[in-house]
Design a protein around this nucleic acid. Structure first.
Lengths: 357, 357
DNA sequence: TCCCGAAGTTCGATTTAAATG
DNA sequence: GCATTTAAATCGAACTTCGGG
């Protein structure tokens, strides 16, 4: 009755073989339920399984991956983990992968090219079977894309539609969102709406503005260009807050009249809130404010922020599902045409918007 | 001149051997700068390195780990990734590991026991060389600890001091923080200070309160027990916001007079801000509010929140350094006594606190 | 055990081909 | 040929040992 085991090191397949009295081959076949397992009598299977359990056998994934070339991991690259916009997307990714027994390896690029390169190397070195990139960074760097394109790893981008021929993507429908926000304010009776447009280099900026413009056009509304302000470019994640504050403060000084602010995102909306408070303007009684994103802060600030929500968790899980399909295709060496998903945003009415007074 | 290469699959050490004209052994020795590399002439080294680069050779980490038993990865378990308190700690961890060329494998337990168990299995299966646990969860589950203790993997806990005999830990000095907050309000002239104590099951709650109490004692201040409120237990991450709001609203109804609120954390401070705003009480003119943590929201809400900052990034990096030492000791099969670090908090004075009016 | 390099074994699991009755 | 089992080759790198200058 072989019993003593080296307790210091994990049990291997050979230990299970010895313990059960069968060969390593048979153990492998049984435990993996391989095709050949058909021919193995239930009794043998039971014995092997019992032995494996008794020893607490856990296959060594390095040996396994070395042989099978499969790793059951996917790489996830975030450009800035501290961006509140990320965490819920990560949640969505995480949950979807968890169900499929895939392990995400998460890397935080911190908006640095060198980190991007090094982490990409690391992930490829670990033979991730796929890649999800959360592109919440503030500048387009075409070189990063080419790095990515050289990879033959299936890739899905979240938050950006770039290299559309190569990568799949999941983004929010920014145009619809812009229209949603404007429509909300318009339907509350607002006619003098200040618009804070996003930084030029950010790909979300233009479509949101187009949404606003098209809605205005359809209603034959004239947008006063003096009420349209531009947030400057910056790599600082908090810059939109600062700049939202500054732009609204200046606008106030110029004595332009407006009864509402349509901000580019929640951060600039928060900056607006601050500027209005400093000027003694009540929200929403004297002025309404609408944000975009629905970051966690939007539901704990005072007043609670009305905003256009990006469906972050669905974006994450959709990305995973696309990726899994692409990986599947890759596995079977079939072609896979990149898919581009555009999810609908949702208006969340809270306290910062109200009827024009 | 051997040139054609199977472009479909990654180059192996044998390919480099063939390309350079040396044996796989020599290639391995050179590329790893192993002890024997001393004897190898620079010319050989150069040739091999050039060949490696030419082929884009990247060692297969599965083969490597299989042999060497080293993985250069550490597992990181977070109990709730969406908790804003986490991300900066993760930054600290990430940066410290990056410098040492370790890769973190991050898992989000989502406060679920089953996920904890499964992820722990996964991480151990991947032979992480160490484990960092960010214990920002709201309930003590002693069983989790025993799961962890069974592991012989070096472990550092952040945010909690439990199983002190087994695990190292890094926490903020909550007592000092409580005192800091109270002292700040006291020095601004406040004498009627409402205190929102944390949920009973949360390990941070008591020491913060002790800090307050001891400071009051030292100044011979009598704390009015009717101004001391308790946040109820809850597993909901946002509960402190809701409950802070409720407690302050009720306190206001009872017509207790107070000129300041010392909240358990930033979320309950935010809830307080909201309650005060609804009641038409201005902050800080009519009432001061101090939080704890310094979550990102604290610097974008209106008014900006005065708070006691936890040094999140240092906490993360300290944890890494402790872990690295523990791993080193483990490697050399030396004993390693758990170390317990308690970092000093820092008062951040912003806009929500002012002289008693 | 100086200097240089290579053949062969090992890690743990999978898989192919083949050996039993 | 069939059901049942297994020895041996394989994955890629690292390490031990060995053989000539």
């Amino acid at each position: 009755m072989p019993r003593s085991k080296n307790t210091d090191t994990a049990a291997t397949i050979k230990d299970v073989a010895k313990e059960s009295g069968f060969s390593a081959t048979t153990v492998s076949i049984v435990l993996n339920n391989a095709p050949l397992a058909r021919y193995i009598p239930p009794k043998t299977k039971a014995q092997i399984e019992k032995a494996a359990k008794r020893l607490g056998y856990r296959p060594n994934i390095f040996a396994r991956s070395l042989r099978s070339k499969r790793t059951h991991t996917v790489g996830v690259m975030v450009f800035d983990m501290t961006d509140p916009y990320c965490t819920l997307i990560l949640r969505g990714i995480e949950n979807a992968l968890y169900q499929e027994s895939y392990l995400p390896i998460l890397t935080d690029v911190q908006n640095e090219r060198s980190r991007f390169e090094r982490y990409l190397e690391m992930l490829l070195g670990r033979q991730v079977e796929g890649l999800i990139v959360i592109a919440n960074w503030l500048y387009t760097d075409i070189n990063l894309l080419s790095d990515l394109q050289k990879t033959k790893t299936s890739t899905v981008m979240i938050g950006r539609e770039v290299g559309a021929g190569t990568f799949s993507s999941v983004i929010v429908d920014n145009e619809a969102g812009g229209a949603l926000a404007y429509e909300h304010l318009y339907s509350l009776g607002h006619r003098d709406i200040a618009v804070l447009r996003g930084p030029k280099t950010l790909s979300d900026s233009d479509p949101r503005w187009q949404g606003v413009r098209k809605f205005a056009q359809s209603k034959k509304i004239e947008i006063d260009p003096r009420l349209v302000l531009d947030l400057p470019d910056s790599r600082e994640p908090m810059s939109c807050f600062e700049n939202g504050y500054k732009l609204v403060t200046e606008l106030l000084k110029r004595k332009r009249t407006f009864s509402a602010i349509l901000a580019f995102d929640d951060l600039s909306a928060l900056g607006s809130l601050r500027a209005l408070a400093k000027a003694g303007i009540r929200v929403p009684e004297d002025c309404s404010v609408v944000g975009f994103d629905d970051i966690p802060t939007a539901s704990v600030c005072t007043p609670l922020l009305t905003t256009v929500r990006q469906p972050m968790e669905p974006m994450g899980s959709q990305a995973v599902h696309i990726l899994l399909e692409a990986m599947q295709a890759m596995q079977e060496t079939k072609a896979f045409a990149p898919v581009h998903r555009r999810l609908a945003p949702e208006l969340v009415v809270r306290e910062s918007s109200g009827r024009v007074g």
